[in-house]
């Protein structure tokens, strides 16, 4: 089935590598996730101090989104009409565990507010929205596996209903040292047709 919408850019972060439109823009083979994402943040000159306060899932999603959005020449002073549709399998389990550990012992009960605020997966959408002034529709779905059909249908629905001019969508999965981000931007213009086949192809890039 043809689509009138197009994928204008995509970012993959996995295996200690950050790629933009299929080209590697950062790679570091020797780090664990937190070391890797911090090094990538510095290498890509992201320059956003609040990054260091985010949980691991938000760091992953934020950096992937930033790689795409910094090329969009967004207006930093006004609202940008870009919706966000994210998905994953692990929800916020990585941070949920950290919070649970802090309340496990009733004799040593000191839950961290800074950890607790990240015990929902869609908090990463908030971090991206604040930085880039995106106040359009947003959703975070939980699936057993990457679900291109749902992302395709939901994104097309948002665009055809004029809910947004662009949609930033994809998969941001993190649980411990297992992580993977695949985000892409969908708009009216571009060379890659927005369909399930192409979404799967770019996901597996």
């Amino acid at each position: 089935m043809s689509s009138k919408y197009h994928i204008t850019s995509f970012c993959n972060i996995k295996n200690n590598t950050v790629s933009l439109n299929g080209s590697v823009i950062y790679n570091d083979e020797n780090n664990d996730f937190l070391e890797f994402i911090k090094a990538a943040y510095k290498s890509l000159e992201t320059n956003y101090a609040k990054f260091f306060k985010m949980d691991a899932l938000s760091k992953l999603a934020f950096l992937a989104a930033d790689v795409l959005l910094k090329n969009e020449s967004l207006n930093q002073e006004e609202e940008n009409n870009i919706a966000i549709v994210f998905s994953n399998k692990a929800s916020s389990i990585d941070t949920d565990r950290k919070h649970q550990e802090s309340i496990q012992n009733k004799e040593d009960y000191f839950p961290s507010p800074a950890v607790f605020v990240y015990t929902l997966p869609n908090i990463c959408i908030g971090e991206i929205s604040i930085k880039h002034k995106l106040f359009s529709e947003n959703s975070f779905f939980i699936f057993d596996t990457f679900n291109p059909q749902h992302l395709l249908d939901y994104t097309n629905s948002l665009l055809s209903a004029n809910k947004a001019e662009k949609v930033l969508c994809g998969w941001v999965e993190l649980d411990g040292e297992n992580y993977e981000a695949f985000l892409y931007l969908v708009t009216n213009n571009g060379t890659i047709t927005h369909n399930k086949q192409n979404i799967l192809k770019l996901y597996n890039t």
Partner: peptide, 17 residues
Amino acid sequence: LGLDSIDALELIVMLDK
């Protein structure tokens, strides 16, 4: 230092702990 409201809550926990 540019601390925010979550930092304030974190400092309250630190005082207790």
